[in-house]
């Protein structure tokens, strides 16, 4: 069953792409298998214009006010925020670990840059994630082709510019195939 794509309202400012907000929260003590991950991830809604984005965003809790093991995901409509999605499986992500207190501002700057097409890497961007954890928060931006070094370098440089991060911030690029390997390594039977 194909869902109807959202369209901009009259007089609204269209975005280059439609996007979907997702939310996930991990139940403490449960293993993060693919199946439970997919069960825990919920769609919030999709939008096609700047105004529709603000209507969602203004009603959402700021990441810095979330508790527990929670994530917001903002992906292009039609791309699931999972490694296994066709758009993601050859891809990777830039990861930035943030000390507590920075997540709300960094997340907003990151998604505004993505929605406004500030990365200038064609069709490469898939989506962005903010992950709220116990001691630190993590933001990441996912792209389609992990092996495309010109693209990943351009995304890194744009991130530095739009996030206005402290100079000692460490940025790490991880391919999704590596993420899958390491997560399997943590399972008791692997």
């Amino acid at each position: 069953s194909k869902k109807k794509m959202v369209v901009p309202g009259a007089g609204e400012h269209p975005l280059q792409y439609n996007y979907t907000f997702w939310y996930s929260r991990r139940t403490p003590g449960r293993p993060a298998s693919t199946q439970s991950y997919e069960q825990n991830i919920k769609q919030i809604g999709s939008f096609a214009s700047v105004e529709q984005f603000w209507r969602f965003y203004s009603h959402m809790i700021r990441p810095g006010d979330l508790t527990g093991h929670s994530d917001f995901h903002l992906f292009k409509e039609g791309i699931k925020p999972m490694w296994e999605d066709d758009a993601n499986k050859m891809g990777g992500k830039w990861i930035i670990r943030l000390r507590k207190g920075l997540a709300s501002r960094c997340w907003e700057n990151l998604i505004l840059a993505m929605l406004g097409e500030q990365f200038m890497v064609g069709e490469e961007i898939c989506g962005a994630v903010v992950s709220v954890r116990f001691q630190e928060d993590i933001i990441s931006i996912w792209n389609k082709t992990a092996s495309d070094q010109a693209t990943t370098a351009r995304i890194r440089d744009t991130l530095r510019r739009v996030l206005n991060l402290p100079p000692n911030t460490i940025m790490e690029y991880k391919t999704h195939t590596d993420s899958i390997k390491y997560s399997l390594g943590r399972l008791p039977w692997a």
Partner: peptide, 21 residues
């Protein structure tokens, strides 16, 4: 084709002045 590019300042302005319905 052409790309729809918005800077942060413009996106924040759209938040303050929503389209009249």
């Amino acid at each position: 084709g052409t790309r729809i590019i918005y800077d942060r300042k413009f996106l924040l302005e759209c938040r303050r002045s929503p389209v009249a319905k």
